[in-house]
Every structure is written in C-alpha cells, then in structure tokens.
Write a protein that binds this DNA or RNA. Structure first.
Length: 476
RNA sequence: GGCGCUAUCGUCUAGGGGCCUAGGACACAGCCCUCUCAAGGCUGGAACACGGGUUCGAAUCCCGUUAGCGCUACCA
C-alpha cells in the first residue's frame, strides 16, 4: 500500500500551491487505498509558529483533505536525524567541515562577482577522521557535509519521466549545522525513510533537491521512493504566484465565500486532467479518475475568473436549504437580522446572480434591510435619465400596489397590475419597473421586479417606495 | 554563470504518427430569451514557439535554437 505525505513548513499561511500539492497526495492515497501522513516541517525554529501550523490544519480541513497519520512534527525527530548523520560519518559517506560561515560567504561573494556559480571547494574533504575528532574536542565548530559521489543521480519521475543529474555538478552540501541540528534535505530523507513513505509527491521547486536526497538515500543504504514533481502555480503574469497577485492563501478564498468543493475541483484541474472534457467533478469522481500520469508537466496560471465560475456552478447546484448555515453566518457578519424570516426563497431568488456565498449574502441582505446609502452609478444614471418621470413611475407603482390586498401579493398578480398600470399611463414596462428596482436594491440588477416585490414583502416594499417617491418628488 | 525543467487559443486543457480544415471549458463579442442583470441556449474570433531531421504521413518521435520558470544557504 502506498504511503504518501504532505509536509508543509509552518512559516506562513496555507498557500494555494501547497493546498494543491496536499490535494494530489490525498487524491493519490484515496485512489490507491494508501495512507496519507501529515508532517509539519518545523526545523526552522526561527520562522515556524504554532499559529501557522493551526492555519494550515484548518485550511486542509476546510478543503476536506484528511490525513491518516499525524500531524507529526519534524522537530521531534532530532535524535533520529543525528543518528543518521552519525551513520554516514561512520561509513565515511560524510565528513566534518571546519570552514567558517565568514569564509564561505566571502567565497560566495567572490564567485558572484565573477558571475560564476559557487560550489564548495572541498577543502575539508580530506581531513582524516581522527584529526577532525581532535579539532572538535579542542572546541572547534564544525558542520557535517555529505561526500557527494561522482556519477549519475537519476530517477524515473512519475510526472516528468526520467530526470538525470551528475554528481559532479552538485557539491558536498551541509547536512548537519554546527549546532547539531539537521538541514532540510537530511531531515526529510530521514523522516521519509522512518515513515516508510513510498511516493514523494511535491512541487517542481524540489526537483533540484531530489538528486541530493537520492545521494542520502544511497549513502544510508535505503530504498528510494517514487518521486512525482507537480508543476508550479503561476500568477497571471507568468511569475511564481505571490502576494502581489492578490489572494494566495486558502483562507482568503474561504473568506470570499468560495465552496470547499469548488476550490478542490478547481485546484485539482490546475495541472491535472482526467483526459476528455469533464470539468465539474465531485469528490468521488476526482478520486476515481486521479492518476499521477494525468499530471501536467508544465506550470499553470491561477485564473480567479474560472474559479469563480466554477463556484457559481456549485452554487446553482446547491439547494437553498444547504446554503442556509453559510448565508446566515455571512448575514451575521454583515450585521443584518433576518427577523425570523424564511431565507430560502430569498436565496433562490439571487442564487443565479451570485458566484460566491458572500455576494449571495449581500444580495439577501439588501432584500431584507434595503440598500445602504445612495444607489450605485447605474441607478443614479437612470434616475437622471428619467428625470421627473422617475418619481411619477414610483408614485403610480405605489398607488397600484397599495390597492393590491395582502392576500393577492403574489408574483403574477403584481406583474398583471403593474403591466396594466403602465399600459394605461402609456409608459414602457421597463421604464415603469426599473425605478422600483433601483429603490429596492440600489442598483439596476436583480431578479424580475414582480418577484423582487414578493421577496421584499408588501409592507417593507411599500414603505421604501413611498419614501423614495416623496424624496424624489420635484419641489412645487 | 552553472544545473535542471517546460513549451497547443489570453487562461485551464484534450490530443500518445493518419480519426485534426486541432476538440472542450473560462474569459471576450454577437444573437435568442427578456422589465434589468444573471442563468440557459446558439454563433463567432482565438493556439500546435522557431528551425532542422525521421516517416508515405507529424501538434504527436529525435536534434538544435529561442523563450519562460525553478534551484544554486549552517532556509524549507
């Protein structure tokens, strides 16, 4: 049975790229009946925080990504990592390096000045073990470097096919800091071996780490896992997705009222395709269709418009009743009290015109509490265009609607009454109705006016219309 | 600079030598519907980076070129 892991470092929020990596791991585990391990890579003590860990856990949970083991913390495995280094040292596959940070930095600067790449010069490579032991006993600080073998370091990547590096292009990199704590590549390999990880599914930014990790696997005499490097997610300018592209944290989308299922569907299709034309794929289909081979080898641009479209698809497919809790929560945030009214009809009325729960809740709020402040630009433009007629239409509407008894306050009779009145006055139906829409919603966009009136309710609608008619009445 | 990865409409992609005058989706434009806007339906514009091979035949295979991206720490 495959064992996969998602291994974020808690140094920031759960990024959409990380979320997608987690999703692919999860999909693969669920598809194959394997095990998903969650490991928090907190070896960078300076930048790791518990708050970030919690945000990552929350983000995964929101997306519906579950894990079977963990969360495990890499920091807890210090002794295991050190034991691995000792084993490498004993086998002569690693050695102590006494070069100081300052020496290394000046070498790096010199290399940069000459526009040539920096590579560790191997100065400490040939220091005999007993001499190294003596110097360390004398209090000299040392890191541990792996002895990088010559020859090929290649693997058959599950998404890219064969990828090959040459050992002599890599240098003897540090695996243990002078303070005795492990460096990322060592810790990862050590943990992946200990956790019996069979498939390492991670971002493309790790492909250049892979040959280094393979060198460690070999030096440790351990079996290498299958590697699958999934492509990066880019911003609209083709550059690596970052803060300046707008929302990149999973939590941002949660706040915007995106459905977890829509986000998951969208993320899955970013860099992966089941083949064919299917787009809207529920969880079960995603799992059933998923394969590592279906993962794209080129990076993908994150397209918010398509995410919102997809969310709209999920929104229309979700019955109003299921939307109720989320809408109620948003209404609370907007400070609008439903006053015990049944929200479902309101939700159904505006559902098709919303792409996110947030937009939907805002529309419901307007129908409940009336628009806030002045109408929008198009509403004002209409008022100007109609001039005095705007108020006339309103007054006529008020008169007709008032004459409609409460028990006849239905979409059909309202439309009939309004149509007849407009006809009698020789007004175009559109001109007669649009002012009502503007007063009731603050804009020129809504469900049909007769339905809008039903949703707002007789008393509230009449009250708002009367007031607006009076306000817009020409002086004299 | 070195090493590596990648290359189909603006974007996500289908495509595994002939089914391709390259299909779908988002976005865009137009039309239908219509009291507005959506939704929905229909229509349209829009791509195989370039150059060489291989082959009867190449978006598909090979080699270059170009471009983009990633990595190049006692970060992860």
């Amino acid at each position: 049975m495959p064992r996969v892991r998602f291994a974020p470092s808690p140094t920031g929020y759960l990024h959409v790229g990380g979320a997608r990596t987690a999703l692919f791991n999860w999909l693969y585990a669920r598809k194959t009946g394997g095990t998903m391990v969650l490991r928090i890579e907190d070896t960078d003590r300076e930048r790791s925080t518990d708050a970030h860990t919690q945000v990552i856990l929350d983000g995964l949970t929101w997306l519906g990504i579950t894990w079977d083991e963990g969360p495990l913390f890499q920091g807890a495995n210090l002794e295991q990592h050190q034991a691995g280094v000792r084993k490498l040292l004993d086998a002569g596959r690693a050695y102590h390096c006494f070069c100081t940070r300052e020496e290394l930095e000046s070498q790096r600067a010199a290399a940069a000045a000459q526009k040539t790449g920096f590579r560790y010069n191997g100065r400490c490579r040939s220091i005999p073990a007993d001499e190294a032991a003596r110097r360390r006993a004398a209090g000299e600080e040392a890191t541990v470097r792996i002895r990088m073998p010559d020859g090929e370091l290649a693997w058959d990547d599950a998404v890219h096919g064969r990828i090959s590096f040459q050992g002599h292009d890599l240098d003897d990199f540090v695996i243990l800091r002078s303070d005795g704590t492990p460096i990322y590549n060592l810790a990862v390999v050590s943990d992946d071996i200990a956790m019996r990880i069979t498939h390492v599914i991670r971002g493309d930014d790790h492909v250049s780490n892979t040959p280094k990790q393979i060198a460690i696997y070999r030096a440790l005499g351990a079996q290498e896992p299958v590697f699958a490097h999934v492509p990066m997610i880019l911003g609209s300018d083709g550059k690596k997705l970052s803060k300046r592209h707008g929302a990149t944290a999973v939590g941002d989308y949660q706040d915007q009222g995106i459905f977890p299922a829509a986000m998951r569907n969208f993320l899955a299709l970013l860099g992966w395709s089941p083949g064919g034309d299917r787009e809207i794929l529920p969880e079960a289909e995603l799992i059933d269709l998923f394969s590592l081979e279906g993962i794209q080898s080129k990076p993908a641009v994150f397209d918010t418009a398509k995410l919102e479209w997809m969310n709209g698809q999920y929104l229309s497919a979700t019955p109003a009743g299921e939307l109720l809790p989320a809408v109620t929560r948003q209404l609370g945030r907007l400070g609008v009290d439903a006053g015990g009214r049944a929200l479902e009809p309101l939700i159904d009325g505006v559902k098709a015109r919303s792409r996110t729960i947030l937009q939907l809740a805002e529309q419901v709020a307007v129908r409940l509490a009336g628009p806030k402040g002045e109408p929008d630009a198009r509403g004002i433009a209409l008022r100007k265009k109609l001039g005095p007629a705007f108020a006339e239409h309103l007054r006529r509407a008020v008169a007709v609607l008032e004459s409609l008894p409460a028990d006849e306050w239905g979409a059909e009779s309202i439309l009939a009454a309004l149509t007849a009145s407009a006809e009698f006055a020789g007004a175009k139906l559109g001109d007669a109705l649009q002012p009502i829409r503007v007063v009731l919603t603050g804009g020129t966009v809504s469900e049909p006016v007769n339905e809008l009136l039903v949703l707002v309710g007789r008393e509230a609608a009449l009250e708002r219309l009367r007031r607006a008619a009076a306000e817009t009445e020409p002086v004299g």
